[in-house]
């Protein structure tokens, strides 16, 4: 058991029979030195997020979930199929991938972490950065090379994001998967 005050982003807790990932915590002080902890949580099974408040001393069950390094194999609607180093396959529901799904593309080589809950693969965590090809972006309007001027771009898999003005169609770019921000041209 951990108190709400002890929880950190990345911890997984059980509430109402559901596992929740702690995404964000903010601690403030109420009266008589009592701590109030505001959290953003993600329901692993429902793939929903919620904001919630706890007393600092509220106790909750933190759970350690099994994780395996896997690579993406193929999509068998509605399941994404991943494979570990021993060629075991794991199916993850498309709805559980959330925003990660936009970076899952055929032939991707990045190693992902598949999370298991009670033996079932429930979510996939991408590496913090991935490299993808820009499939379309408008040509540079002003010839800006500073990287401060941004424009929209579509990448392999169909996702769109803002990229530096100097990026061209066909370039490979690095993206931060936590913030969905363009990092650099590879």
């Amino acid at each position: 058991m951990k108190t709400a005050h002890e929880l950190r982003p990345g911890n997984v807790i059980m509430l109402d029979g559901n596992p929740w990932v702690v995404l964000k915590t903010e601690t403030t002080r109420s009266g008589r030195n009592a701590a109030i902890v505001k959290m953003k949580l993600k329901n692993i099974l429902a793939d929903t997020t919620t904001e919630t408040t706890f007393k600092g001393e509220d106790k909750m069950e933190d759970i350690i979930l099994e994780r395996l390094d896997c690579t993406y194999s193929y999509f068998a609607d509605p399941m994404y199929v991943f494979m570990d180093s021993e060629y075991n396959q794991y199916d993850v529901e498309a709805g559980n991938l959330g925003e990660a799904a936009q970076y899952i593309v055929d032939g991707m080589e990045e190693v992902c972490q598949v999370t298991f809950y009670e033996g079932k693969a429930i979510s996939v965590e991408l590496p913090t950065s991935v490299s993808r090809e820009v499939t379309y972006t408008e040509p540079s309007a002003r010839g800006d090379t500073s990287g401060k001027v941004m424009k929209p771009a579509t990448i392999t898999g169909g996702a769109t994001l803002s990229v530096a003005d100097f990026v061209k169609t066909g370039d490979i770019i690095e993206i931060d998967t936590r913030t969905h921000e363009f990092k650099k041209r590879v």
Binding site: D16, G17, T52
Partner: peptide, 12 residues
């Protein structure tokens, strides 16, 4: 920002 927020309980 904290007023009226739910407080999820382990017991549901």
């Amino acid at each position: 920002d904290c007023h009226a927020l739910p407080s999820l309980q382990a017991n549901g």
